[in-house]
Simulated assay, not measured.
Amino acid sequence: MKWTIYLLLLLGVFSCAEVKNKKNSQASPVSYIKDAPTLDGRAIENYWNLLDWKPIDQNWIGGPFDHDDYNGRYKIAWNEDGLYLLLEIVDNTILDKTEDPLKLWWNDDCVIVYVDEDNSGGQHRFNHNAFTYHVALDGNVVDLGVDKKPTLYNDHITSKHQTEGNTTYWEMFVKVYPGIYNDDPNIKPVVLTENKKIGFALAYADNDNSEERENLIGSVFVAGENKNKGWIDANVFGTLQLVK
């Protein structure tokens, strides 16, 4: 009995250590903006010029790629209503071949937004302890619902993009929902506040004309051979700290 209690306590210590490490994982401060940008895929607001670019350059799936085939970076800001994203994606082929947004949504070119409202980490495949939003070129937003089926979350993320040559600029507004969200529309997004920490990552799925996506390129370093863990495990997300 004593050994059982000891082992349980030891496991508790390791679990706490994992959460603590997650809270400090690849931390990044995020600046406050008072006025929301006009979501039109054009970074005309002056405050976008004041924010630093952050890379989306970690190859999670696929072989090597060159700069002309893919290059990505983003800027991020916040206010009480949610997160605001500006992405610059260089991609020589933009593909959206699956018309049904709930079928093979991960194989078309899309932006993937990973959000863990309380930065707690942990599993989230069939729950909303965290979200893996696939934002398609047509604006549809897909994640797995609590019923284990693909579900549209178009009211969670609003996006617009503009393409100039091989470069596509995306602007997004992301509402941040709590981990208790269970697909009940009565559960509202949280009001963001200064010093709040949010688990977060971005990725871009790149398909130049294959049956499956050729690369998945993320914004955070993931250790180990299996780097495509974010859609299940929020422990690999980075950490945003909201500042003013």
Rank of each mutant, 00 (worst) to 15 (best):
G41E: 02
A203F: 12
E212P: 02
Y114H: 07
Y133R: 02
N129E: 01
N182D: 15
W60H: 08
V111N: 07
D35P: 00
N107W: 03
L39T: 07
K75Q: 12
I94K: 05
F221I: 08
D52F: 00
A205P: 06
K227T: 10
W60V: 02
G121F: 01
A17L: 15
K2L: 15
Y6M: 15
W60T: 04
Y74T: 05
P178F: 11
W48R: 00
Y32F: 15
L87H: 05
G165S: 02
K97S: 07
G139D: 01
W105A: 02
N119A: 09
E45K: 00
P64G: 07
T4D: 14
G62K: 09
W53I: 00
D66K: 13
Q58W: 02
D206F: 15
E171W: 08
D35L: 07
T168W: 04
D69C: 09
K244G: 14
K2V: 15
Y181D: 14
T167W: 07
L9V: 14
N71G: 09
R125I: 05
N226D: 13
N195A: 10
P55T: 00
L9E: 13
Y47Q: 04
T93Q: 06
K197M: 13
D69P: 00
W78R: 00
L192S: 07
D183Y: 14
T151L: 03
I44C: 01
K160A: 09
G165F: 03
D66L: 04
F65I: 06
N46Y: 03
T193N: 12
W60G: 04
V142D: 01
S28N: 08
E194W: 05
T38P: 00
E117K: 05
S210E: 12
E18A: 11
L152V: 01
G199D: 12
Q26W: 01
Y169S: 11
L50P: 00
N129R: 09
I89R: 04
I89A: 05
Q241P: 08
K188R: 15
Y177Q: 13
N49Q: 06
K197F: 06
A205V: 11
G122P: 01
A27D: 04
N209V: 08
W170T: 08
K2Y: 15
D96P: 04
L50I: 02
W106C: 00
A223S: 11
V111S: 04
E45F: 00
K196H: 09
G179E: 13
D143T: 03
F200C: 09
L216S: 08
V111F: 08
V13A: 14
Y70E: 03
W3C: 11
L11Q: 13
E117G: 02
Y74D: 03
L11V: 14
N140R: 10
A36W: 02
L102H: 06
I180K: 15
